[in-house]
């Protein structure tokens, strides 16, 4: 009997790429048949596991966290500066007082609320609705859009 199958040959038998001699060996060799069964079981587990959606990632991206933190800091700073200048302008009377507007460089940054994630079907419905809702061709420059007038 020919030497036992390598793991790669065994996988090729599983994927349908095995040679005739490998397949014959697999039929006759008990250890290789057992290894093949184990491979089958593992492949079933692997494909089943990977067919499920991947788990959520651990945390928000660092740069997003920084962006939120910086936005919050900018808002706080703008508020504090605005508040203190407002107080100063009310107490200061005279031609040399600085205009309040000069403090307006750090405009308050608006934090957008987290938008709910729309489901795939809802998004699909939205874009189909959008596409069929108007007769105009919005993607006039789209090379794929040969159907547009």
């Amino acid at each position: 009997m020919k030497r036992c199958l390598t793991d790669q040959s065994l996988l090729q038998c599983y994927t349908g790429d095995g040679t005739a001699s490998d397949l014959i060996h697999l039929e006759d060799c008990v250890p290789c048949a057992a290894r093949y069964k184990a491979l089958e079981a593992d492949m079933a587990l692997i494909t089943q596991s990977l067919a499920a959606p991947p788990p959520a990632r651990r945390s928000a991206p660092a740069f997003l966290r920084w962006r939120v933190a910086l936005s919050a800091a900018a808002m706080a700073a703008a508020f504090v500066i605005g508040w203190s200048l407002r107080g100063a302008s009310m107490s200061q009377i005279g031609p040399h007082s600085k205009p309040i507007a000069s403090a307006g460089h750090s405009a308050p940054v608006q934090l957008s609320a987290a938008e709910p994630t729309a489901s795939t079907s809802a998004l699909y419905a939205a874009y189909v609705q959008d596409a069929f809702g108007s007769d105009s061709c919005s993607e006039a420059n789209d090379p794929l859009d040969a159907g547009c007038p």
Partner: peptide
């Protein structure tokens, strides 16, 4: 790539499909 580099796969599974 940058985004991927700063997140740790994986923490929690979403519910459903199991």
């Amino acid at each position: 790539k940058r985004w991927r580099g700063r997140t740790e796969p994986f923490d929690e599974f979403r519910d459903g499909e199991r």
